[in-house]
Simulated assay, not measured.
Amino acid sequence: MLDSAAPQVPASPTVIVIGAGIIGASIAWHLARRGAAVTVVATRTGGEATPNSFAWINASWGNPEFYYRLRLRSMREWARLAEDLPALPLQWSGGLCWDLPVGQLEAYAVEHGGWGYDLRPVDRAKSLTIEPNLAEPPEFALFAAEEGAVEPVVAAKLMLGDAFRLGATLLPDVVVEGLVEESGRIVGVRTSDATLRADHVVLAAGSGSLAIATTAGLDLPMSSPPGLIVHSRPHAKILNGLVIAPHLHMRQTSEGRVIAGSDFGGSDPGADPQGVADDLFSAMKAMLRNGDVLELETFTVGHRPTPVDGFPIIGAVDQAPGLYLAVMHSGVTLAPLVGLLAANEIIGGTPDASLAPLRFSRFASGNARLTHGRA
């Protein structure tokens, strides 16, 4: 809920956005489009989690209906964003999915298909027409025709670049040490070099949000589990779209790299990340015909900012007027819609009902908890 006692919002509010990953970039771009005076403060342009994302755009299984609809709406917003930024490296390739037992796949198709998700049952022969380079195609799978992927760092930098064209300011390589509070309201941020002031502060720093929020007395209930993803050297086209198989999710980037994790978030590397990466890359090669031609280029380990119930935390904070939170694991899918709705709420001053279940206030003592499956 937005603070009803907050001062009158000026026609062109000043906003500091902490974080330059896919979420911070989207919020900054949407705010700049609405005429706000935006300053983006970040330790790394492109973010910390964003470069290590599998970058799957979906409204897949495991979501209660309200969250499914939010994700589906954001998939539509990706299409809208591409109209405004035609250079976006966005691919609507569809996804071949069989990472559940057959009974659960069928239940997923009935539920999400009933909600309007385009899921098509396919047999082994049809799977091979979709992905002809699978070494062992599944006997039964679902083809999610609407799903896609984006190259997230390029997308974030494109949004930031256009925001700067519209007048936004970037302060790169800057560490935010804390939030500045005056008379019970957040009025800026403190860095090692200066104190910056604004009408609103947006905290979209991924796993770094936890420490920053603590400086305003807020305990964000979240964790940052690690996820390892392997990246091949660029190769000629070997995959047409997303492959969501048991214990191995993979896709080919616009640069030709085949990337994979043990699930969409990546593998937990444990104490031996190189060994996990080698085993995962071997499994990926074995899943593909002529997969031996692929060469491991690198692996990345990202830390996914994940609230304890799996759902995003989005919106103004009653305990800290002037602060707007945008912390989530499904950042790539949700980025364009979160940017749009956050800008609308900050500039318009009116809460959006579709975000009501995702407020920080849901963690207050006695409040009901949401139930979540897949992010």
Rank of each mutant, 00 (worst) to 15 (best):
Met159Leu: 15
Ala125Ser: 09
Glu182Tyr: 01
Ala144Gly: 12
Phe140Arg: 09
Leu119Arg: 03
Pro138Trp: 02
Phe143Arg: 02
Phe143Ala: 10
Glu181Leu: 14
Phe164Asn: 01
Glu182Cys: 03
Lys126Gln: 14
Gly167Ile: 05
Glu181Trp: 01
Phe164Trp: 06
Val176Gly: 07
Val175Met: 12
Pro172Val: 00
Val176Tyr: 03
Leu128Cys: 12
Val150Thr: 13
Val174Thr: 15
Gly161Ile: 05
Asn133Ser: 14
Val122Phe: 07
Lys126Arg: 15
Val180Met: 07
Val154Trp: 00
Glu146Pro: 01
Ala155Asp: 09
Leu128His: 04
Val174Trp: 02
Val150Leu: 10
Pro138Met: 12
Gly116Arg: 01
Ala168Pro: 08
Ala144Met: 12
Gly116Pro: 00
Leu128Glu: 15
Ala168Gln: 10
Glu146Gly: 09
Ala125Cys: 01
Trp115Arg: 15
Phe164Thr: 11
Gly178Met: 06
Leu142Ile: 09
Glu139Ile: 05
Met159Ile: 02
Val154Ala: 14
Thr129Phe: 01
Asp123Ala: 01
Pro137Cys: 07
Val180Lys: 13
Gly161Lys: 03
Val153Ile: 08
Trp115Met: 07
Ala156Phe: 06
Val176Asp: 15
Thr129His: 08
Leu166Asp: 02
Ala145Tyr: 02
Pro152Asp: 11
Ala141Asp: 02
Gly148Val: 05
Pro152Tyr: 07
Asp118Thr: 07
Leu134Tyr: 04
Tyr117Pro: 00
Arg165Asn: 06
Ala149Asp: 13
Leu179Tyr: 11
Glu151Pro: 00
Glu139Arg: 15
Gly167Glu: 08
Leu166Gln: 15
Met159Trp: 12
Pro138Asn: 05
Glu146Lys: 13
Phe140Asp: 05
Ala141Thr: 01
Gly178His: 04
Thr169Val: 15
Pro132Thr: 09
Ala155Ser: 08
Leu179Val: 02
Lys157Ser: 06
Leu160Glu: 06
Lys126Val: 14
Ile130Pro: 01
Val122His: 08
Val154Asn: 01
Lys126Ala: 15
Ile130His: 10
Pro137Met: 06
Lys157Leu: 10
Glu139Thr: 13
Glu136Asp: 15
Pro121Asp: 07
Ile130Phe: 12
Asn133Pro: 00
Ala168Leu: 07
Thr129Trp: 01
Pro137Tyr: 05
Trp115Glu: 01
Thr129Tyr: 04
